[in-house]
Lab assay of single mutants.
Amino acid sequence: ELVLALYDYQEKSPREVTMKKGDILTLLNSTNKDWWKVEVNDRQGFVPASYVKKLD
Rank of each mutant, 00 (worst) to 15 (best):
T26V: 15
N41I: 12
E16G: 13
N32T: 06
L2G: 04
L27E: 00
Q44G: 06
L4Q: 11
M19F: 10
K12Y: 06
L28Y: 04
V47M: 00
L55E: 04
A49L: 01
V17W: 05
D34Q: 10
V3P: 00
E1R: 12
L28A: 03
K20C: 12
V52L: 15
D8P: 06
W35F: 07
K12P: 04
K54G: 06
P48G: 01
V17G: 02
K33R: 13
R43E: 05
L25Y: 10
P48Y: 02
K12E: 08
K53C: 15
G45R: 01
L6T: 04
Y51K: 09
V17M: 13
K37Q: 12
L27S: 02
K20L: 08
K33A: 12
K53T: 14
Q44T: 11
L25Q: 00
E1F: 12
R43L: 07
V38G: 01
D23L: 05
R15I: 13
G22K: 02
L4M: 13
G45A: 03
V3I: 09
V52W: 01
Q10L: 13
T31D: 15
E39A: 13
Y51A: 13
G22S: 03
Q44S: 12
N41W: 10
K37N: 07
Q44F: 07
K37Y: 15
N41F: 13
M19G: 00
L55D: 04
V52N: 01
E16F: 06
R43Q: 08
T18Q: 04
T26I: 15
V3K: 00
L55F: 10
D23N: 07
V47Q: 01
K33M: 10
L2E: 06
T31A: 12
D34G: 08
S50A: 14
L28R: 05
N29E: 15
L25P: 02
P14R: 09
M19H: 00
F46A: 02
P48L: 03
F46Q: 03
S13I: 04
A5E: 01
T31W: 09
R43S: 07
K53V: 15
V3L: 14
E1V: 14
S30P: 07
P14Q: 10
L2S: 08
T26M: 14
E39G: 11
A49C: 07
F46V: 07
Q44V: 14
W36N: 01
K20M: 09
V17Y: 03
A5K: 01
Y9V: 01
L27T: 02
D8E: 05
Y9F: 07
L6V: 07
D23F: 05
S50T: 09
T26S: 11
W35L: 03
D56T: 12
D42P: 06
F46E: 04
N41H: 15
D56Q: 11
D8Y: 04
Q44I: 14
R43T: 07
F46L: 08
S30W: 09
K21N: 05
V38W: 00
L25V: 06
Y51M: 14
D8N: 07
T26G: 10
G22Y: 05
Q10C: 12
K54Y: 10
S50K: 14
L27M: 04
D23V: 05
K20I: 09
T26N: 10
P14C: 11
K33Q: 14
W36R: 01
D34R: 11
L28V: 12
A5I: 03
Y7N: 07
A49E: 05
Y9G: 01
N41K: 14
G45M: 05
S13L: 09
K33H: 11
G45P: 00
V3F: 08
K20D: 04
D8G: 06
P14T: 09
Y9C: 02
I24W: 06
R15N: 13
K12C: 12
E11D: 05
I24P: 02
N32A: 09
K53M: 14
A49H: 04
E11T: 08
K20G: 05
G22V: 00
K21W: 03
Y9N: 00
G45I: 05
K33P: 14
V38H: 00
K33V: 10
T26R: 15
M19S: 01
R43N: 07
W36D: 01
D34K: 11
L2V: 09
V47K: 00
N32G: 10
E39W: 08
W35E: 04
K21V: 08
K54M: 12
T18R: 06
R15S: 12
D42F: 13
L2F: 14
D34N: 13
D34S: 10
V52T: 04
K12I: 07
W35I: 03
L55V: 11
D56S: 13
M19W: 01
D56A: 12
V17E: 01
D23I: 04
D56I: 12
E16S: 06
G22N: 06
L28I: 15
L4A: 06
P48N: 03
L4W: 07
K21T: 07
S13D: 11
P48F: 02
Y9H: 04
R15W: 15
D34I: 13
L6A: 04
W36P: 01
V17A: 05
W35Q: 03
L27Y: 01
N41C: 13
R15K: 12
K37S: 07
W35P: 00
G22I: 00
Q10P: 06
S13G: 13
V3M: 07
K20R: 14
Y51E: 04
E16M: 05
D42Q: 12
E16T: 08
R43V: 08
S50M: 10
L28F: 03
P14A: 11
K37F: 15
D23H: 05
K54V: 13
L55W: 07
K20E: 06
V52I: 09
K33F: 08
D23R: 03
W36G: 00
M19Y: 01
D8C: 05
D56G: 13
M19I: 15
V3G: 14
V40S: 15
R15F: 11
N32P: 05
Y9D: 00
F46M: 08
F46K: 03
M19V: 10
D8A: 06
G45W: 04
I24S: 04
A5P: 01
